[in-house]
Amino acid sequence: MTIVENLSRPVSDVEREYAAALERDAAQLRRIVDLLQRVDVDDPLLLDVAEKLDALSEHLENPIDTVTETIRNPGWRHDPVSGVENAIAPPIVLEAGPDGTVTAEVEFGLPYQGPNSFVHGGISAMVMDHVLSAATAPQAGVIFTAQLTVRYHRPLPLFVPLTIAARLREREGRKIWATGEIVVDGKVAVSAEGLFIEPRPKAAQ
């Protein structure tokens, strides 16, 4: 069993330490994202929280510590689905099996809600896009979605463990087809198929 994240480029100890700190920050932020869905709209505490967050942003947004080039090396650590450093990611930790199947376990909370007590259809589509693209095992870690079809067979409940799986179906040059599904209680709730295009080797650098 390989955590897909490990397929990213190797990192130094300093980078690893920094990444761990970012991951801890994201975990706390994720807690706040969730808690904001459960607090009273008019709770006076929010005024204080907003003020403290504002001060923290001022602190973080200083030019010395901010990258001038806005685009960071993409990878599995800060994307919006699996990125442990990204507070808006659940995050979905992907595991690659020996046969190339990519699997993940996840339970969605209130921030991911669409219809009352169910996962948002757009969130299911987002997850499918991401897990299918991971199953294409892109070289250089970059792949573009060309076509994605998502079918919703039954509503996906919040607060219930879900199993996600995806696999590569066919490869033809830079075109890769993959399929996958989200299973709840042994039943397929969402299924998807996608066509993905690998960038030309030169463009991937």
Partner: peptide
Amino acid sequence: PYQGPPAAVHGGICAA
């Protein structure tokens, strides 16, 4: 925070 491929919006975010 919404990035997928370099400089581009994540395909899943577009879907959402």
